[in-house]
Nucleic acid binder design. Structure first.
Lengths: 162, 162
DNA sequence: ACAGGTAAGTTCCGAAACAGAACCTAGGGG
DNA sequence: CCCCTAGGTTCTGTTTCGGAACTTACCTGT
């Protein structure tokens, strides 16, 4: 399979990665959540080449994750802002950050702390069940085909049974 | 900057992506959480070339996310299993899946449902504050440099202020 | 009028990564 | 002896990436 067909797969994870699974894309989005909006600011902070940055921004705009908005005319300049679809990626970003905090930090510890305004505490995000509020762990969650897709998905059962 | 130096960056997200930010790596991990353990099963389900699959599995083992375990001798065969470090990526996977369910599904809806054994409901994971239990949104979270890193991080302030 | 600066890209080239297919290794089964 | 299985490695051509220079369309100062 080629990477460019990933958005056709019957798998929400593959489809998500067809948008944000490229090299640099999630790092661009990290900076969006930090308030960066302009081309040259992205470039200065990211260390990515202008070529790749232009490509990633264009793809994110086409995917509806960012939108381009003029902030001045003559000369026309535009900035990039998260759409609601983009802001919905926040749990993804925060989960990735938290894993890095826990498993990839060096002696100095994680570089960034997150304070939750509502309760005032330094916090981390945890994944909880939208129905009962308990924390979700892999073995508490049973995966099943949704009825509309029955029989069209590749079952991993052979692998699980043995 | 080159992609290979990403694990040195003072940013937990970059460091996480140095492990799982490659093309295909998160899709390999999706299958790990579905119970797939063997080389040929990954290949059949993923549609990735054997070359790339071998490379990703090796990198994940080196990163401590998967471990290789013999399941028979003569001929020796080994399977890949998630370590605890790997299982800690569950929130990342589930957040990506949920975003795809919401924003990338077609008319048939999302292909997979998740049932939470503890409460019996079909559920989704939401990101909540580990301290107060409220759902976390981008604007409720204030980012600050941790004391050990003060002054060593690139501030996005110029971008935020204007 | 002209030099230099700014913001947001685009173009060009060599290096690295990827896709597809064939090949290899160490055994087992008929 | 031939074919099969599991888990890879090698080979070849196409894409994508990294680094640097160039472009466009204005603005500012002299």
């Amino acid at each position: 399979m080629r990477w460019e067909n990933l958005d056709q797969e019957p798998c929400s994870l593959s489809r998500t990665l067809s948008v944000v699974g490229d090299r640099w894309t999630l790092i661009v989005l990290r900076d969006c959540f930090l308030g960066v909006r302009r081309f040259d600011d992205f470039e200065a902070r990211l260390g990515v080449t202008r070529h790749v940055l232009a490509d990633r921004l264009k793809k994110l705009v086409n995917a509806g994750v960012l939108e381009k908005r003029p902030y001045q005319e003559r000369p026309r300049r535009e900035e990039y802002r998260l759409t609601e679809k983009g802001r919905d990626l926040y749990p993804v970003i925060l989960s990735l950050v938290h894993w890095g905090d826990r498993h990839m930090a060096d002696e100095a510890g994680p570089p960034i702390r997150h304070r939750h305004r509502a309760c005032g505490a330094y916090t981390r995000g945890i994944l909880t069940c939208a129905e009962c509020g308990e924390e979700l762990h892999p073995h508490d969650v049973e995966v099943e085909e949704s009825p509309a897709w029955t029989g069209q998905l590749l079952p991993p059962k052979k692998a699980i049974d043995r």
